[in-house]
Nucleic acid binder design. Structure first.
Lengths: 108, 108
DNA sequence: GCAACATGAAACCAAATGGTTTCATGTTCA
DNA sequence: TGAACATGAAACCATTTGGTTTCATGTTGC
């Protein structure tokens, strides 16, 4: 059990604007897919595919309730994004970076 | 002057692992493309395309120095990501979310 | 001036992506 | 039981993506 080998990761999952909207909607409340797709200008099948991508990234879960399947957001995988971002925090609004560039620009 | 209509945004730009590596490399120091592509297992042309995507997203800048063009990271656009992420902070490690789910699960 | 170097641009390609439509399957409840 | 509903799966399609190779252009410095 070495590589996770998930087909889609968090970075890919949130790259698409429709999927970001989906995430936003499912953050507030769980919802069956038919109800979800009423809010989007595309077919239920298209939404279904987007949901699968989000699921593969761990950003969405579902549970069966009667004949419907309710989807909800799962926020934890976003922590990976947060961690990735934290590396770059020192690069914005940072005096050291300005200094570094000043030095580089003076090199020739 | 309505829509920015940039072909690539930050979310797309960081979706690709190669581009994330590029960003990481160019965060530490500026570098001409030939030197950059020596660090990657693909052609200089491929790197060139990735750099263009990063540039369109505003994540990379360049300046001419003699016959070479040195690339460097520009971190500011990542703030959009940070802002986007901040909306979801209340969803991880949050008692309220647990309560919400408890209520939902009890509904039938 | 010109060889060597650094880069850009174009044509091409396979695979992935984001949609569609159509059909199949399972569930509910009157 | 069977009609209506909720979903999933499959086939298909156009465009985008991520790579290649080949060729063109501009710059440097002996």
């Amino acid at each position: 059990m070495a590589t996770p080998l998930k087909k889609h990761d968090v970075f890919q999952a949130i790259a698409d604007p429709t999927r970001r909207q989906l995430l936003h909607v499912l953050a507030e409340q769980e919802m069956p897919i038919t109800q979800i797709s009423n809010r989007f200008p595309m077919s239920r099948t298209a939404i279904s595919k987007h949901l699968r991508v989000l699921e593969e990234a761990g950003l969405v879960q579902n549970r069966r309730v009667g004949r419907e399947k309710r989807y909800r957001m799962q926020a934890e995988p976003l922590l990976e994004l947060k961690r990735w971002l934290s590396f770059y925090e020192r690069f914005w609004d940072n005096k050291l970076v300005a200094l570094q560039r000043f030095v580089e620009d003076g090199q020739e």
